[in-house]
Amino acid sequence: MGEQTKVYAPDGAVGSPAAAPAPPVPVLTGKRIGILDNAKPNAGALLERLAQRLVSRTGAVLGLVETKNAALAAPDEVIARLQSEVDLVLAGSAD
């Protein structure tokens, strides 16, 4: 048995965290729903169906549908349009 020693942790510090998600919207009635379709197979159909169900059950309205590449971040102008035109966004689907 050797002597106790010290070793470094390998992970290093964490930089500025990514932007935190907005708080949940407590009541959807009258709110505008956006879709950010990441173009994965069936993502558009899944998100649109989900939005339709929310619209029919809560009185929300479908405000905007945008498409982005799944492998890249959404362009700034897409994020800006969503920020200005809707209250919540349904986003993303995996493979």
Partner: peptide
């Protein structure tokens, strides 16, 4: 970790198997 310098941890001995267990 969240500080600027990496943490230093106690390792029972200077040995790859001990390090694997710690990590």
């Amino acid at each position: 970790m969240t500080g600027d310098a990496p943490l230093l941890l106690d390792l029972t001995e200077d040995d790859p198997c001990a390090l694997m267990q710690l990590y």
